[in-house]
Amino acid sequence: MRQRCRRRLAETGLRAVDLHELCAEFGSRRARPVVLSSMTMPSNNIHAMLVRASEADYIVYERDTTPLHQQHLIAHELGHLIWDHRGLTGLSGGHADYDPVEELEAETTATLLLERQHRTLAGLARSERTRTMGQALGFEFGRW
């Protein structure tokens, strides 16, 4: 799954590292904005959602949580957009039904986006010598 998601990310040609910039770049490439909006979510079970409107795609995420959790929520919903997932498939017993393969793709894509962000930011903080050693060991900074 990680390899499939890496290939998908590479196909997008996205260069930005920061999630807000990634959303803007992805929206620009599709000529369809990705708008980020934080709010206090109405349920303990829902932390984020993707809303596809006629003029834009909206990633709405929980305001009342940690910045790290917010980053993960944004990355997960962006993963759904990158894969062009259809989203909610129905309701069962009052709970939302989501395609488990789509959720795994979105979650794995989110992990790769956040890993790339961390590696790149950590790489900027490293000395040139440490960076050279990391590359010699096979670490790729700022790449999928």
Rank of each mutant, 00 (worst) to 15 (best):
E21K: 09
G87E: 08
E77D: 08
R7S: 12
G93Q: 04
E21S: 09
L124N: 13
S127K: 07
S37G: 02
A24S: 14
E25D: 11
E25S: 07
A125M: 05
G93T: 02
Y98G: 00
R8S: 11
N44Q: 15
R30Q: 06
L50C: 03
T120I: 01
M39R: 09
M39S: 08
H69P: 07
T40S: 10
Y58V: 09
D18F: 06
A48I: 05
M133D: 13
R116M: 02
T65E: 13
A56M: 05
R15H: 07
P67E: 15
Q117R: 15
R29I: 06
E105A: 00
A16S: 13
R7K: 12
L112Q: 03
V101N: 09
L112C: 08
P42Y: 05
H95N: 09
W83I: 03
A106V: 14
N45S: 11
R15T: 15
V60P: 02
A53Q: 12
E77I: 07
T108C: 08
L19F: 01
W83H: 15
G138V: 01
H95D: 02
Q70D: 03
A31R: 14
P67M: 12
L50N: 09
L68E: 12
Y61T: 04
T108G: 04
R4I: 10
A10K: 14
M49T: 01
L88Q: 13
E107K: 06
E107S: 10
L14S: 08
T132Q: 14
M1P: 09
W83K: 06
V60H: 02
N44E: 15
D99W: 00
N45C: 06
A56L: 02
V51M: 03
R119H: 14
E11V: 12
R32S: 05
E77H: 07
R15F: 06
G79P: 04
L112E: 08
E128Q: 13
A122E: 04
W144I: 10
M1W: 04
L137R: 10
Q71Y: 03
L19N: 01
R52L: 10
Q135H: 12
T130P: 00
E115M: 10
V17M: 12
Q70I: 00
A16M: 04
T132P: 01
A96S: 07
S127C: 11
H85S: 12
L19D: 01
A16L: 02
E103T: 03
T66S: 15
S28Y: 12
G123P: 03
T111S: 11
M133W: 11
T66H: 05
T40Y: 04
H80I: 10
L68Q: 13
